[in-house]
Design a protein around this nucleic acid. Structure first.
Length: 479
RNA sequence: GCUCCGUUGGAGAAGUGGCUUAACUCACUGCCCUCUCAAGGCAGCAUUCACGGGUUCGAAUCCCGUACGGAGUACCA
């Protein structure tokens, strides 16, 4: 077993786009594979045909690749030995295995209708039982009864027959020994009446056939594990090693829900806002994992090197958007200028005011904001704060420009600026120094009125940069 | 309800019986720099590890209870 090549997987259902939870789960599996020289497989669990949405599979895969989590095998890069990589393409295989369990007496046909099941559930509820367990009424159906049901048009599902008082235990990669009793688990459906396997059955078959050795998944799957273990046992297959990571919670301590609009969930949203894939990779890594030495900024290689599944947290991690912002901004600051220009270009291009400028000029302006922004799209707001003059001043702002010294400063500045041939950093700084000497006013009394005249706000980037962006003509107009 | 998992500061956490007067990072606060914002630099921020018992010379660390939080409890994945 030890010499078996490590194979891990990320197996989303194509019911939505790649979101934080999925990406993190993929990330840790990827790290595991790379840490131990194994392969990372991308496979699709599309058995819930009602909820599948077109395009989800592709975007899941491509967002993953964007993040740098690159599968060794995938729906687009299948290894013939393990294909197909979509569950709906291997229905016959599940069918065959399910029949095998039936013939061995480990599973049985269930002819109950949805309504009957519903009724059963309600009755159990009335009797104070809140966790529904199938009452096994179809367990020992005679052939005649089955025929009768079939004539009624009923199509059976297949349920796994759970043994009684059987301990299902496993060693969890992150939580240690965990055990369940089979009595607490009802006979669950493995093949739906529409001929499609349920998740718990399909994963087992897939993981076995694909020779998956380790499964790192969310805590929400912890209670699925004994069910799957029982299937492995019936088949006589060796189960992979499981590891259950904590869920990610929102600031209210609740599981991050896809409907939680307060938090951006999808990778595509982050991409659109100008988050750096390496930064998200890094941030995701921090979500429930701490490095031995407390390191927090990692390249992919460093993350692989640091990764140790035993150090995965056992208590839920809150999704901290401020920390993401911080991580992202450190990645932006770290970029060399060429990389930064390429990164920021699409956002700068959205600003009409700059449309006619040369690439070099746009780069120059972009650079003024490199230390200022936490994500790409932020530059749009910051630039607009300068370009679009705010006219509805608040009291504090009004007070500053209404001072006698203010109008004096503005007039003086205007006069000096007009004479300037070039409004570069040095020249503009000189003007300010001259005004300082001539008027003996404090820096604040000089800069603030001009700042407010030029932008309408009391904060922002360096004055000479503002003037540089606006240009001499526009600057004079605003004074 | 039942099953399973968890509980160290606002957040992520380090910590695996004495070196912990609890590391580090984000956030926050203050100071420096500075016209301002940001960046950067410096400093502050848990006398205490949910609570109650126990084991021990010694416990955040081991054991037992209680409380609280979470996940699951589907012919969803």
């Amino acid at each position: 077993m030890d010499d078996k090549k490590v194979r891990v997987r990320y197996a989303p259902s194509p019911t939505g786009y790649l979101h934080i939870g999925g990406a993190r789960s993929a990330l840790f599996n990827y790290l595991y594979a790379k840490k131990f020289g194994g392969d990372f497989v991308f496979r699709i669990e599309d058995t819930d045909v009602e909820r599948n949405i077109p395009g989800a599979e592709e975007s899941q895969l491509h967002d993953l690749i964007w993040l740098g989590i690159i599968p060794d095998e995938s729906t687009e890069k299948p290894n013939p030995k393990y294909a197909p990589y979509r569950q709906m393409e291997k229905l016959d295989i599940y069918h065959k295995f399910a029949q095998e369990l039936v013939s061995k007496g480990y599973a049985y046909e269930c002819y109950c209708t949805k309504e009957e099941l519903e009724e059963m559930k309600e009755e159990q509820l009335r009797n104070g039982v809140k966790s529904f367990k199938y009452d096994r009424r179809c367990l020992s159906l005679s052939e005649e009864e089955k025929e009768k049901y079939k004539k009624e048009g009923r199509i059976p599902s297949i349920r796994l027959k759970m043994p009684s008082n059987h301990t299902l235990k496993f060693h969890d990669l992150v939580r240690g020994d965990v055990s369940f009793n089979s009595d607490d688990i009802g006979d669950f459906v493995i093949m739906k009446s529409n001929g499609i396997p349920t998740y718990n059955f399909a994963v087992v078959v897939d993981d076995h056939l694909m020779e998956i050795t380790h499964v790192l998944r969310g805590e929400e799957h912890l209670s699925n594990t004994p069910k799957q273990l029982q299937i492995y046992e019936y088949f006589g297959w060796e189960p992979p090693q499981f590891g259950h990571m904590t869920i990610i919670v929102n600031p209210n301590g609740k599981k991050l829900s896809k409907r939680d609009l307060n938090i951006l969930q999808f990778m595509s949203q982050y991409r659109d806002l100008g988050y750096v894939p390496e930064a998200i990779f890094n941030f995701l890594f921090l979500l429930g994992y701490t490095d031995q030495n407390g390191q927090e900024i990692f390249t992919k290689e460093e993350a692989i090197k640091s990764f140790d599944p035993k150090r995965l947290s056992t208590s839920p991690a809150m999704f901290d958007q401020k920390k993401l912002l911080w991580v992202n901004s450190t990645y932006i600051k770290k970029m060399d200028n060429e990389t930064y220009f390429k990164f920021i270009e699409p956002f700068v291009n959205k600003i009409e005011f700059l449309n006619n400028l040369s690439k070099e000029r746009k780069d120059e302006i972009s650079l003024m904001f490199k230390n200022e922004i936490s994500y790409g799209a932020q530059i749009i707001d910051l630039l607009n704060d300068i370009i679009v003059l705010k006219t509805d001043l608040d009291d504090a702002e009004k007070e500053i420009i209404s001072k006698e010294s203010a109008s004096k400063v503005c007039a003086l500045f205007k006069e000096k600026l007009e004479k300037l041939s070039e409004t570069n950093e040095e020249n503009v700084k000189n003007i300010f120094n001259e005004i300082k000497n001539e008027t003996e006013l404090k820096g604040k009394e000089i800069y603030m009125p001009i700042r407010i005249k030029l932008t309408g706000v009391m904060h922002g980037i360096e004055m000479y940069n503002i003037i540089d962006i606006l240009g001499k003509e526009e600057t004079l107009k605003r004074l």
